[in-house]
Design a protein around this nucleic acid. Sequence first.
RNA 1: UGUCCCAUGGUGUAAUUGGCAACACGUCUGUUUUUGGUACAGAAGAGUUUAGGUUCGAAACCUAAUGGGACAACCA
Length: 569
Amino acid sequence: MNKDSNDNHSEEVKSNFIHLEIDKDLEENKNGGAVLTRFPPEPNGYLHIGHAKSICLNFSLAQKYGGGCNLRFDDTNPVKEDVEYVDSIQEDVKWLGFNWEKEVKFASDYFDQFYAWALLLIKAGKAYVDDQNADEIAKQKGTPTEPGTESPFRNRSVEENLDLFERMKAGEFPTGAKVLRAKIDMSSPNMHLRDPYMYRIIHQAHHRTGDKWCIYPIYDFAHGQEDFIEGITHSICTLEFKVHRPLYDWFLDQIREADENWKAKVRPRQIEFARLNLNYTVMSKRKLLELVQKDIVEGWDDPRMPTVSGLRRRGYTPESIRNFADKVGVTNRDSITDVALLESCIREDLNKKVARVNAVIDPLKLIITNYPEDQEEWVELINNPEDESMGSRKLPFSREVYIERDDFMEDAPKKFFRLTVGKELRLKGAYAITCTGIKKNEEGVIEEIYATYDPETKSGATTVTRKIKGVIHWVSAKHAVDAEVKLYDRLYNHEAPAAQKDADHLDFINPDSLQVVRAKVEPSLKDAKALDKFQFQRIGYFCVDKDSSSDKLIFNRTVALKDSWSKKK
RNA sequence: UGUCCCAUGGUGUAAUUGGCAACACGUCUGUUUUUGGUACAGAAGAGUUUAGGUUCGAAACCUAAUGGGACAACCA
């Protein structure tokens, strides 16, 4: 990966408490002025918006201080991990706009070194092999209010520990038969210091090391060393790891004490920050996986998912997500961010970037009775009033057009600026029309609307000066292209679906989170390609779905336009 | 009935480290507009969880209370 291409975007990042800490370290010349961070996902799931916050934080730190950021897979548990995730994670990080330092890193590349260090700790009398099973060890752990008791195997000789550990590695014992533990303090008020696990036996092939290993290091005996080996200066993680920090430091201190080659190396510093929470959504990999496995959504990239791939498919841009990550800030207090902030970020970005098009998502036919039967003409519309350089396009206009069912009302209040019998309004970019009548079926549902147009009011060329308040979008019936449009709403109808004592998050699934409608869209959309983004005039922002084709157009609604009219009602 | 962390408008963050609380989102008003969008102008909304203390002066420092969170996986 090329470091220089890392800043194709150089947004000013809001300052936060981590900057202050790094500034301090730099002043003390702790790492010779270097700043190297890392994003260390476990390849056991897809990245979500919470990871995106962490990614933005770590890479922006690197950018700000002229350092780098590694992408490192924390692949120490073969039973949960898979290459599928390794691939999707790299794709998502790149898509977000970040380039990691050099080649991708893997914790599994350091297994030999971890093993050598474990041997050193055993020799120093700081680690021992325990023959007990998980239950027994858990019982001896004590509780947060009671100290633990020492394992009967705690005081084995160095020779015996060495022998046993080597045989663990050699595959002499079955999965789970023995573990390697650090010898620290069973009565520590910090549970993580009560002789924590270092290695366990797992007879399972690893996606990168194959069958080379049957013992795998636990997080605490891996993460700090990974940072240390790579020369990470600041190891940024979430709040729940705060209690692990003494252990993170302890292992590295032992290693530096026991290993001449690493004595002089500066210990990386762990700094914790609060993870992102969003209302009306869940953010745990386990729950997201549950949504996928129970077919509540259509996969990890379902546009209702808070995953990076879901947001991408929904029509979010990397810029909007980066901007959002900056706006939520970085602190060490738990909080729940309103999804409205995320939505405002994507609206802000798309508003200036994306072309406006005419699309009718709930079509109602309107017949212009005084417009010649076989006549058609082309009218010109501006592509984006926010950006003149995007030019204009021509749209066919004819006697029959589709308008939005919502844009007509029989008994309209005076504040209704749209169409009602006897009222005049403008078909955007075309003519002013006056509604003359409607046709209903037996059930009273309106089937057609009739209107007359005023040829003197053609957009651009008009000499008519009277004020026409209402303007609606439309699509020529004869030229319209059919499209499937997916209207998404929040996946949950509860603000905090994962935080209820007596209920499961699945109890709060919004049954109307997806509504599929048949729309009529302007012909220029016929060849729109996957991920193309548009503003459907007066409706919202839409993105072409990956399953779309010119035979069957599919659009996903990214977000609706702000709507101060429906609020009034 | 432990240890540690946290506490600022509805929400998320600021406050140059002790000098009369700012920004964004949201909400509400207007103006412009061939999008009830955007833009622009403006408004409401916290006196910083509470009680003590230190100080000429506290959102910031100290103590306690209250509330929230983390910690007892051969997960990360």
